[in-house]
Design a protein around this nucleic acid. Structure first.
Length: 258
DNA sequence: ATGGTCGCCCCGCGA
């Protein structure tokens, strides 16, 4: 089976591109981030017509996440339990596979703007809360996949300019330590299980011809639990949609599970 | 010479 993640930067604008991508890439499930719309405006009918069940957690103007799945979704959780948050950043659900239940956690991690700002402090607190919740979530659901826009470039090779951007947002020691903490829970970065092209990125700034110059970051990730790791057969970033007219600034990432 | 990001929803903010 295949599971994907894609920050689409407004579902209203990007719906036709999401539907076209799903038609060309009929993944079993996908986590979407930055819907930028309220639940009342979520296009359930369009996704149902495309063959997907959907659960969403929307918000006006900012944030918003959803999971689409070929098979029904159950035990839906919205945001981190016990962590008061006005921003809609997390949705988790269980889907049933022939191999057993699979827990899919889809997150739009906090951006954090810049070290030293209030937004950065909020990012670190959010990352702590996520880590603590995921520890219990993993104990309850051994077959777990964590997907999303992590807003962290885990290593220097995940940035087009690790020297010039050292200690700036997405690159700080604190953010990278939090990424390592997630791995420490028993999660594996599926992308790095395989040989990948150099300078593989999942996000490119709209400004200054970022994509054309491949000035990007790898900040969209798929992490798999220890139980799932042996079944991972591939993981790739699909740059194609970034070449579309009116693209999202992020590309989808896809993992294949045997 | 001008404009050189996008999406939100109305204007400057967040990414």
């Amino acid at each position: 089976m295949q599971i994907a993640t894609w920050n689409i930067n407004s579902l209203s604008v990007r719906l036709p591109q999401v539907l076209a991508w799903l038609e060309a890439n009929p993944v079993d499930a996908i986590g979407l981030q930055e819907l930028k719309l309220v639940d009342e405006k979520f296009p359930h009918d369009a996704f149902e017509a495309a063959g997907y069940h959907a659960v969403c957690f929307g918000q006006k103007t900012y944030n918003g996440v959803a999971i689409l799945s070929r098979t029904p979704l159950r035990d839906v959780v919205r945001n981190i339990p016990g962590h008061g948050d006005e921003q809609a950043r997390v949705i988790a659900a269980t889907l049933d596979t022939p191999e057993g239940p699979l827990r899919l956690v889809n997150c739009y991690f906090v951006n954090g703007q810049a070290p030293g700002t209030e937004k950065f402090s909020y990012k670190l607190l959010w990352l702590e809360a996520l880590r603590d919740w995921l520890r219990t979530e993993l104990a309850a659901h051994p077959r777990l996949v964590l997907v999303g826009d992590f807003n962290v470039a885990p290593e220097d090779r995940d940035s087009f300019d690790p020297v010039g951007l050292k200690d700036t947002i997405h690159h700080t020691v604190e953010e990278r330590q939090h990424f390592q903490d997630l791995l420490g829970l028993g999660l594996t970065d599926a992308f790095r299980l395989f040989d990948q092209p150099e300078k593989s990125y999942s996000w490119w700034d709209y400004r200054m011809l970022g994509f054309q110059k491949n000035r990007g970051l790898r900040i969209d990730h798929i992490l798999v639990s220890t139980a799932l790791r042996p079944s991972v057969t591939a993981c790739r970033i699909d740059r194609a949609p970034r070449k579309n007219p009116q693209p999202s600034d992020h590309a989808p990432v896809v993992v294949s599970l045997g």
